[in-house]
Design a protein around this nucleic acid. Structure first.
Lengths: 237, 237
DNA sequence: CGGACCCTTGATATAATTCAAGGGCCGTGG
DNA sequence: CCACGGCCCTTGAATTATATCAAGGGTCCG
C-alpha cells in the first residue's frame, strides 16, 4: 500500500501538521514521495527551483561554494524539516542528500496556494523559518568563536539531538547513545570550518578523553553526555 | 508636522510597501516612530518581545553571547530592514542600536493581524526572511573559510552597499565613495570572528595596499572598488 | 590482487591570537 | 587653560591553534 498523508509517520513533526484533517486528501494528491541515494542533488544552484520538500528520513545538506572551490555546509535538514523557498527566488546554494533519504515533494506554486488557503500553515512555516535563522546564527557563533573541540562536540550533540531514536515519552536518563554521523569526515570539516585532519584528530582526542567512542566509520557512541555538553558549552542557548 | 506612513521615505524599501494605499492610514495608527541613541537595546534577550520594527535610519545589530562572555554579532539591520519574529517565540538574542537610529515600531500581535489581512505583506515578509537566511549563510561561509583580509573587505563592501547614499538612478561609475562604518573596531571583530588587533592591522594593510583610506575614527573611503571586491572575493554569490 | 577511497597520524608552517605597551581624542574638573 | 583619566585604537613581540604537507593504513569492490 502506498503511504499516504493520513498514515505519514513524520507528519506530527512536519509543517503539514498545521493542516486540518479535511485537507489531508488534498495535500496527498499534491505531494509525492521520492527516495534519494546519498550524494544525489535535491535542488541544484541555478535551478529554477520549482519544488519544496519535507524530509521524511535521512539527512540533507545545504552548501555554499566559492569560485575557488572552498565549500561551507550552511545547513543540515533532518526528518521533519522543511526545505524550500516559498514566495522567494531560487538561491545559488545547493541542496544534496547527505545520506540515503526519503523526501516528500510539493510543486512550489501549489504549495504557495496552500499557504494562502491555510493560515495555520503559513504561520507555522514562518515560525520554522525563524528557527532556521536562529540555528544559522547559533552556527555563526560556533564558526566565529568556538575551538575545534567545541565545534565537534556541538556537532555531535546536534546529531544526537536530531537523530537519536526517541523511546516514546521517555525523558529518563539515556546512559550511552549511539548514532551514525550523517556526514563524512570531509563534510564535517566543511560544516565546522575545519580541515579533515583536524576533525580526525579532535575526534580521537574526544575518544581518549572518554567522552565518545568511535566505531568503525561513521558510527559513534556517546559515553559521557555531560562531558559532551560541557565541551560543546558556550551558548547553545 | 509628524511624519506619517504616507510621507515615509523608506516605505518603498520596507515591507510596508506591500500594503495597498488604502491601508496606509490604518498602519499609521498602529505604528509609532522612536529615536534610539547608539548602544540602546531594542529587543532584550529574555524579553517578552511584543514588538516588531522597521529600521528607518541608522544600523542595529543582533548578537549572540555565550555564558563565558564571548560575543558574536550575527546580523546587521540597515534602513528598510524588518526586525522581529512574527508567529515565533522570542529568542535569546539581543538587538541593539549600533549607531543612533530611528525605528518604526508595531505591536507584534497587531502586526500578525495585518499579516493575516494582507496576503501581499505576508508574502513579502517571507521573502525577506529567506533573504535574511541567505545572508546568514553567506556569513557562515565567511566565518568558516575566509581570511582576515577577505572578511574585512566583505564587511566594507556590505556597508558600502547598504549605506552609501544612492544618487538617484545613478548606475554610473562611482569613483571614490566614503561612509562611516556603523561599528566600532571591537564590534567589527565580533561580527567577523576576529580580535580587535587583527581588525586594526588588516585595515591598515588594506590602506597600505591602496584599497581604502582610513579617516579618523569610523570614516572610511574606498579608493579602489575593484580591488575591494577582489579581496572580498570568494562567493558573494 | 590491485586500486580507489577515506580516514588517521606525524612533522612543519603560518595566520591569527594573546600579551604588552603606547598614542590620540574627549570630556571633566581643578 | 591645562591636567587627568577613560576609552578606543594602533603597533610590536611572542605564542598557539589549526592548516598544510606528507605518508601510511584500513576497507570495500571489481
Amino acid at each position: 500500500m502506498r503511504p499516504t498523508c493520513r498514515t505519514c509517520a513524520i507528519r506530527p513533526s512536519a509543517v503539514c501538521r498545521a493542516l486540518p484533517p479535511e485537507a489531508l486528501d488534498q495535500i496527498n494528491r499534491l505531494s509525492h514521495r521520492k527516495h534519494l541515494t546519498a550524494g544525489r542533488t535535491l535542488f541544484a544552484a541555478e535551478d529554477g527551483d520549482h519544488t519544496v520538500a519535507t524530509v521524511l528520513a535521512g539527512v540533507a545538506k545545504t552548501s555554499v561554494t566559492s569560485a575557488d572551490g572552498r565549500t561551507q555546509i550552511v545547513g543540515l535538514h533532518f526528518p521533519g524539516d522543511f526545505i524550500g523557498r516559498p514566495h522567494a527566488a531560487g538561491s545559488a546554494n545547493m541542496v544534496e542528500a547527505a545520506t540515503d533519504m526519503d523526501v516528500c515533494l510539493f510543486d512550489k506554486s501549489r504549495f504557495e496556494a496552500l499557504l494562502r488557503e491555510h493560515d495555520g500553515l503559513s504561520r507555522l512555516l514562518m515560525a520554522r523559518m525563524t528557527e532556521d535563522l536562529d540555528a544559522a546564527r547559533q552556527w555563526m557563533f560556533l564558526l566565529g568563536h568556538k575551538s575545534a573541540a567545541e565545534r565537534l562536540a556541538s556537532f555531535i550533540a546536534l546529531c544526537i539531538d536530531r537523530l537519536e531514536p526517541r523511546c516514546g515519552a521517555d525523558t529518563e536518563a539515556k546512559p550511552a547513545s549511539r548514532i551514525d554521523l550523517p556526514l563524512s569526515r570531509t563534510e564535517i570539516g566543511h560544516f565546522l570550518g575545519l580541515t579533515i585532519e583536524t576533525v580526525s584528530r579532535v575526534l580521537r582526542r574526544l575518544q581518549t578523553a572518554g567522552v565518545i567512542e568511535i566505531e568503525s566509520g561513521r558510527g559513534i557512541r556517546v559515553v559521557d553526555r555531560e562531558a559532551l555538553a560541557a565541551t560543546a558549552s558556550a551558548a547553545t542557548d
